[in-house]
Design a binder for these strands. Structure first.
Lengths: 208, 208
DNA sequence: CCATACTGATCGAACGTTCAGTCAGATAGA
DNA sequence: TCTATCTGACTGAACGTTCGATCAGTATGG
């Protein structure tokens, strides 16, 4: 649980250090146990300093959520000239890596916990709505490109993208809140067969 | 946010009243704002009384989670002699009702928030693993019945069930943590088309 | 010398929890 | 039937702790 995602491995500014400390504290203690004191301990500085950089805990946590979503968004691959099906797989992999390292488990758990706050905090839900929208736009792009290229059938790209996004969200949640990690691998396999049978244009190779 | 699901509308025992109060407090204040004081206020009795019935907050909340999952599980329809496809739809509807009433929104939000706790509390994740397993068993039953009846193709029922369950989980999460309710309706539509194109045996009527 | 980074002491509020004690009703011995 | 005993539901005041937040003041680099 001590590993750090690459995007905050080498913080350069003080604020980035605080974001990193917040992340570590969140992974270790969970959202319910996320206190200023514990963030300060991960930070290695006094908690007063946190108030020097942020007005209050609320602002810090909101900034942290925004930081996490932006960094995650920027980790989405931007391959424009590949096979549409491979590009689709790459997008799914970005959210749902096939093997769940301790590092990525911590990240996903943090995201799931933050997302749950959106149920009662409109500012959180706005952030996640925006994030979901951005990811879905990427999916739509890939699917529409695939349709134009003739690789995919002429489906409603918007609807398919929302479906894929929803399944990915479910797999992210389940893989850190259920007993084991089956959900994610099954979701990836199932999405693949879904793509094969619903999305792919011709030469159906359904073997299962 | 003041509505109550039918299964705890008329509490008969004191403990049921406490479960109801806990539910109402959770809906109103969220998990982060769920205090003994607020449960007592919804309860209409003193908070000391809560400690008369439960050792501590932890035990109360764990009992509440178990209560919620059991009641939810018992709300799953048990129709044995219908069309497999309709039975499948009924199962999905039980978790993901087509129109999200204020009552059901509160319930779903509560479930999503509780589930997020499982990321850092093994006791929670065990409960949810059990709950997911039970729901998935229902799905497997229906799918296997459908295969035997010749309505469905000879798919891997276990895998399809896990896929459907994961998508449902994602839709539940998204519909209360994103801006709008599109996720749920899209998921239902997409599951339907998935069933049509992947599960259904013959006479494919793909029109979209 | 001035701004920025930073600290330790400290505060009031809110939290979970405890406890002594009240009250209504059931039980039962004389 | 009167009275003593017991029980379980219930309360209000209080405890110790922890939280977020404040502030006066120190160090430090330009």
């Amino acid at each position: 649980m001590g590993e750090t995602p690459p995007f905050l491995a080498n913080p350069e500014t003080t604020r980035e250090s605080i974001m990193r400390a917040t992340y570590l504290a969140l992974c270790e203690h969970g959202y319910a146990g996320l206190t200023i004191q514990r963030i300060a301990e991960s930070f290695g500085k006094s908690k007063s300093l946190l108030y020097h950089h942020y007005d209050d805990k609320d602002e810090l946590l909101l900034a942290f959520l925004q930081f996490m979503l932006e960094e995650h968004e920027s980790s989405v691959p931007e391959t424009a000239d590949d096979d549409p099906r491979e590009r689709l797989d790459a997008l799914v992999d970005a959210m749902l890596p096939p093997e769940l390292s301790a590092e990525h488990r911590g990240f996903t758990a943090a995201m799931v916990e933050l997302r749950a706050q959106a149920a009662h905090d409109e500012r959180y839900s706005e952030q996640f709505a925006e994030h979901d929208r951005a990811f879905q736009d990427h999916l739509v792009d890939v699917i529409e490109d695939g349709i134009e290229a003739g690789t995919f059938r002429d489906v409603d790209a918007e609807r398919v993208a929302e479906f894929v996004g929803t399944t990915v969200a479910g797999a992210m949640t389940r893989r850190v809140t259920g007993g084991d990690d089956r959900a994610a691998t099954t979701a990836r396999d199932a999405l693949e067969s879904y793509v094969e049978q619903v999305l792919l244009a011709d030469d159906t190779g359904a073997d299962t």
